[in-house]
Write a protein that binds this DNA or RNA. Structure first.
Lengths: 353, 353
DNA sequence: GGCATCCATGGAAACGATTCCATCATGGTT
DNA sequence: AACCATGATGGAATCGTTTCCATGGATGCC
């Protein structure tokens, strides 16, 4: 039989003090030097570790952080998660991770699960409506969004106003991000990033630039439309559903239906991968036949043939900052953070053929 | 003020029954049809969700699953984690994830944290000694290893015996994996996979094959030695520490110090990436100057120039099966599982120059 | 020297569930 | 008719912690 873990009572008895004193000593309350010393000695000797269960029940909250991402298989979310984990570790907080598959239904289910666990701090890459977050905030959760904001609820009144507002914030300065239920967020500066990419392609002479997006890329496509300026050819804007297969199908369909396009902006690394694959399959040479810019830098972009020109985002930092935000929410709470992106020119873009 | 969540007492009062009855109804105990119906109605109306906190305290365990991986940034562990998450979600269990950075110290710290949370089920890709898992099993945790087994503790008596034993299990049949503290594990069939790769390279005429490994690849390097047969040239076996930089340095150093090698077997996707990069940097052409096989298939392997020949592992399945194992541990417990690997020939290997 | 203050301390009440146990009603059997 | 078995039910204990409150001793100030 393995001895049960020592409880605070055991420590109290062994140290000849009351449980209240032990609790105080261990959580930094006031106690005489003599008692403190003895309690600590006994606790160390018994290898006592306070049970989070008891504590959490008493304080009616779980210290931990919830993290909801669409897909850990996507390198971007992997890096983001790693950032969250790093920050949480340094704070000694556990992180409960859920993968939503970009499905609002699963997301709602996971939110419910976190609620049941009394997890009161949540970092989320949202898939569902703004409405989906009602239950969470109503239950008193501290929510911080990362990478994206929830799309407008279908029935909301000032539909595009908030989004338009958001698009206005620019540059690197941490800017307030007022939005749905007024929740803070940590985002990459999609607007500047996309604009840079579009300008770069325009500068090379490209006029028919396609946009290849996935779920949750509405801010990016909005930025794309804005950067292009003139009303965009809607056939050149296509969306996949999130799976690799769907991304490939979308890319392939795009190339086939519009052989006149000369450049593609892929809004995420999975889409970029699909674009390269589809182009290769159709014997389109990059960059001779078609130029390609991928939003999000990944290690393999350099290994690709040709190496991919990308817009790099600080994925890990996004996670880290989000964790900081959700942990510091007690004191002054910065409203939101926008982190800079960077164009990294490699070999996948050339002048218009 | 947002109303506090309803407790079981609220439900009991509203339904005019005792708390015990409510608890029984909700957890499937016996109750008359009339009462059950009323309790369920009231619970639904109050939007009652039992608090995991209270339950866990009473039963002295957290339902959840702990998951410890070296690095979520590594695509392999991302896929593995996704598998665990998928299984856990279908069981409604939360997953607490920690990233150890392949550092035994951080690993021990995270184990301590999970212990404190009373997480009693753990899936781990171990970094530390067999000894590091003492505290966990002593505390009554159900531990399942994934992808690797902990290395032997330095002071252990029958040093290589267990490992040798393990190397003997072969093929696809789920086989008992008796080892340190007798813990179950879900592994890829590294031995067969490495052997296949080595034979494939041998068949192409290669004689000086290098092995590029990382932390936790001891079973793979052992399989490599065994597959090569004759005593291997120790200069051709190099290890990196886990970071991308270290992997690049190791690969680059290998190519420079032994220009006579004709093939490289990279034991993981990060190492494969580094090998491609280093080869390119040194103007070694793949596969003309050097052939390359990577252990672990990743989406970008196909995009690489040339596309990489790989040994694919069912990363997601490994995670999924591990989660099944750790959840089913109550009933009959299969001792361990070995999953098959597959050689996927693309374009990174050629005949010996 | 007396009184007010302050601090260390321990007992006990939460927190929200599960679960043991006693109670009571019911119905069937002898 | 008495008795027993069965099943539904509610009260109360329990899990391990934090925290409120009362107590008692010591110290400082007038």
């Amino acid at each position: 039989m393995d001895a049960k873990r020592a409880t605070i009572k055991d420590v109290a008895r062994a140290a000849g003090v009351g449980v209240a004193t032990v609790s105080r000593v261990l959580s930094g309350g006031s106690a005489s030097a003599r008692t403190r010393e003895r309690v600590l000695a006994v606790a160390a000797q018994l290898d006592y570790r306070p049970s989070a269960l008891g504590r959490n029940l008493r304080q009616r909250r779980t210290g931990g952080i919830g993290l909801l991402v669409p897909d850990l298989t996507d390198s971007f979310f992997g890096r983001l998660a790693e950032g969250v984990l790093a920050c949480a570790r340094s704070a000694g907080e556990p992180v409960v991770v859920g993968s939503t598959g970009d499905d609002p239904e699963q997301e709602a289910e996971l939110i419910g699960m976190l609620l049941e666990q009394s997890v009161d701090r949540l970092i989320a890459v949202p898939s569902g409506d703004a409405d989906a977050w009602g239950p969470a905030v109503k239950a008193g959760m501290t929510v911080v969004f990362a990478d994206r904001l929830p799309s407008e609820a279908p029935g909301e009144d000032d539909d595009s106003a908030a989004t338009a507002d958001l698009m206005l914030l620019d540059g690197l300065a941490p800017a307030p991000v007022a939005r749905s239920a007024d929740l803070p967020a940590v985002l990459a500066d999609d607007r500047a990033g996309i604009r840079t990419a579009v300008r770069y392609l325009s500068g090379l002479g490209h006029r028919r630039i396609a946009f290849l997006g996935g779920p949750g890329h509405d801010r990016r496509v909005a930025a794309f439309r804005e950067a292009v300026g003139s009303p965009v050819d809607e056939e050149l804007v296509v969306f996949a559903t999130g799976s690799r297969d769907s991304a490939y199908a979308a890319a392939s369909g795009l190339f086939q239906s519009r052989p006149d396009l000369t450049a593609v902006l892929a809004a995420g690394n999975v889409l970029g991968e699909a674009a390269v694959l589809a182009a290769r399959e159709l014997d389109l040479r990059v960059p001779r036949d078609v130029s390609l810019v991928m939003y999000d830098d990944v290690p393999w972009a350099e290994l690709c043939a040709p190496p991919l020109t990308v817009i790099a985002q600080p994925a890990r930092d996004i996670g880290y900052r989000a964790a900081e935000l959700v942990l510091r929410s007690g004191s002054r709470r910065p409203r939101g953070v926008v982190l800079p992106t960077e164009l990294i020119v490699r070999g996948s873009c050339g002048p218009r053929r």
